[in-house]
């Protein structure tokens, strides 16, 4: 199984390197948020910390938007009969989703680093250790969103269905993270819902880490929650592949 993951991971990386354009594309949206939206917050929350508070949110945004789109690649592969052909061989079923998900994690961390570089150029100053730990959290978010996308794709087995599921997931996830406006402004019931959103805790943890506030309770909570959920979605995705070739 480890050998299969290694072989398939190398294969995925080769495929991504052949089409590097798409990798860059994934960061365009968060970059736009950073460049066009963060300055607005500056006016709203004077004091110069707006960019530092917004950047973790932008990182979570890439995890969400680029992570949820990976399922389309899996569907293309399903249509072309690639999954079925692989499944008729002795390859580990888990490797069929784990390898691409690992590639997605690496891509996401790379995209996050790019975004952090841009934020630094824009004048953001953050705790270096905090930033490094945030990247670990981003990697876990990447595993979560990619395996969720694979599971949804293999369960729906339909591009339109996947697009609708993604759109439905995207809006509440985005609004209930406090990326755009702080959740402190929200009424109690809305805050209660946000507390059930793992991305909300990830953004909170990222902000605390960037500020160098390592004792903040949101950090272990976000890490545990994200990792735990990622393992569940990974399992779901593996089950869906198995069902494909019962």
């Amino acid at each position: 199984m480890i050998k299969d993951v290694r072989l398939l991971f190398a294969h995925e990386v080769r495929g991504s390197l052949r089409n590097p354009f798409w990798l860059l594309f994934g960061v365009v949206q968060p970059v736009l948020w950073l460049v066009l939206f963060a300055p607005l917050l500056d006016g709203l929350m004077p004091g110069g910390s707006a960019l530092r508070d917004f950047t973790p949110g932008a990182l979570v945004l890439i995890a969400l938007s680029s992570g949820l789109s990976v399922g389309y690649g899996m569907l293309a592969r399903l249509r072309a009969g690639v999954l079925e052909r692989l499944a008729a061989g002795p390859v580990s079923r888990a490797a069929l989703v784990l390898a691409p998900a690992l590639r997605d994690m690496v891509v996401l961390v790379g995209q996050a680093a790019l975004l952090l570089g841009l934020a630094a150029l824009m004048g953001m100053r953050a705790n270096p250790l905090g930033v490094a730990l945030t990247l670990v959290l981003v990697a876990a978010l990447g595993l979560l969103s990619a395996t969720l996308s694979y599971a949804l794709a293999l369960t729906a087995r339909d591009e339109n269905g996947l697009a609708q599921l993604n759109a439905t997931l995207y809006v509440p996830m985005l609004l209930l993270t406090g990326i755009i406006l702080p959740m402190a402004l929200a009424p109690g019931w809305l805050q209660a819902i946000a507390a059930a959103n793992p991305l909300y805790h990830a953004v909170e943890a990222g902000r605390a880490l960037f500020a160098g506030d390592f004792r903040d309770g949101s950090i272990p909570l976000a890490l545990a929650l994200t990792t735990g959920l990622a393992l569940l979605t990974l399992r779901w995705a593996i089950t869906s592949v198995r069902r494909l070739a019962a």
Binding site: H11, R14, G15, S16, R18, N19, G73, A76, R77, R79, A80, G81, V82, E84, R85, L86, A88, G89
Partner: peptide, 12 residues
């Protein structure tokens, strides 16, 4: 096994 769809991975 060669399916009706072929199963050639187009990314590589």
């Amino acid at each position: 096994y060669v399916s009706q769809a072929g199963g050639v991975d187009e990314t590589v």
